Simulated scan of single mutants.
Amino acid sequence: MMNYRTLVINPGSTSTKIAIFEDTHLLAQQEINYLPADLAHFVDLMDQKDFRIKSIVDFMNKHDFDFQSIDAFVGRGGLMRAIPGGTYTIDTQMISDLTKGLFGIHAANLGAIIADYFGEMYQRPAFVVDPVVVDEFDPVAYLSGYKDWDRRSVFHALNQKAVARQALKQIGKSYENANLIVAHMGGGISVGAHKLGRVVDVNNGLDGDGTYSPNRTGSVSAISLVDYIYDQAPKKSEVVKLITHEGGLKSYLGTDDLKTIEKEIDQGDEYSRLIFDGMVYQIAKEIGKQATVLMGQVDLIVLTGGMARSGRLVKALTQRVDWIAPVTVIPGQMEMQALNLGAQRVLQQIEQPKNYVKEAEELANGRSI
């Protein structure tokens, strides 16, 4: 079996993560962090493309890698049309959707755009894997309570699916033949019900659904939000910022740094303890909700994301949910490895790459029935 080399590109709002893999072996990696001043003069996200490309070229030169040695370029999938999970060949329609921001603006949009740039330049395939818009919902999961406001599947799909596969491998089960619940706990929190290889339901932590997190509100009273908008008359962008960046722990405690909050708890701050316990309580409720989606047939619960490094949080959460199923902890995230593995499965002909337009249209047509 051939060993294929991939260049993995994962843009964040203030950083670009880069890694080179050969088969499953990591050869080099770097997280390039940008100062606010580095990005301040760019009018919009797409203007950052050349700047970030230069960062990647510098990385390749620093580590003495030739672009010609790369077999495939893999970018983090951004906000695009809803599609099922899998590895997708980057095409012109995907690039157009991401460039125009038709389905939202996020730094991850640049992942596919930059991977496509290098793929075109060096005549190599370019892929995205399990973007945040992965949609594998059961029909009933779309219903929200108002006919024009369908629930959206937007979550940490890449890491959720990767840790699910890893955790199940440890107990001798395959992802396609097991049921599990994965709680990704970072700046945002998503808790997904994985049923026989599909994420059939998950809260949309980006839009304000589910538990509060370090800096997101989660679900709040709709009437309270309406009152706030009418009383304060804020701009739309201000409301979005409140929901996605100013809520949760930050709203209650003035900081979204979990380590700082845990120190305050250790020093006897009972209010900090209450707010911390409230977040644990809400995460546990989300896990319980997804257990009902799986009708109690749960092989495993996986806790992942940056907050899974907190022993206090993991212990408190496990005490609330381990009656549902055994709990496995995979802290941090496997995004770079997952992007590589998705590309490797295609390069090694284990899977066929999916077509973005075809899969998006089939999903949309299926929902309209």
Rank of each mutant, 00 (worst) to 15 (best):
G172E: 10
G197H: 00
Y146T: 14
Y146F: 15
G187Q: 08
G197R: 01
A183K: 01
K161F: 03
G187L: 00
N179H: 11
Q160H: 09
A162V: 01
V182C: 09
A157F: 03
A193R: 07
F137S: 05
A167S: 15
V182W: 13
R152L: 14
G187M: 06
N177Q: 15
M185F: 09
F137V: 09
F155A: 02
D201A: 11
N203E: 07
A178K: 04
Q166E: 15
S190V: 05
H194W: 13
V163P: 04
L196C: 06
G197S: 06
G172W: 07
V134Q: 02
N179L: 07
I181T: 05
D150W: 14
V163C: 04
Q170P: 00
Q166F: 07
D150A: 15
K169Y: 12
Q170R: 11
R198H: 14
F127G: 08
P125C: 03
D150C: 12
G188R: 12
A157G: 05
Y175D: 01
S174D: 13
Y175R: 00
V133A: 04
D201S: 08
K161Y: 00
V200D: 10
A162R: 03
D148S: 12
I189L: 01
A183G: 00
I171N: 10
E176C: 07
N204I: 05
G197W: 09
G197D: 06
G172P: 02
Q166D: 14
F127I: 08
K173A: 08
V191K: 01
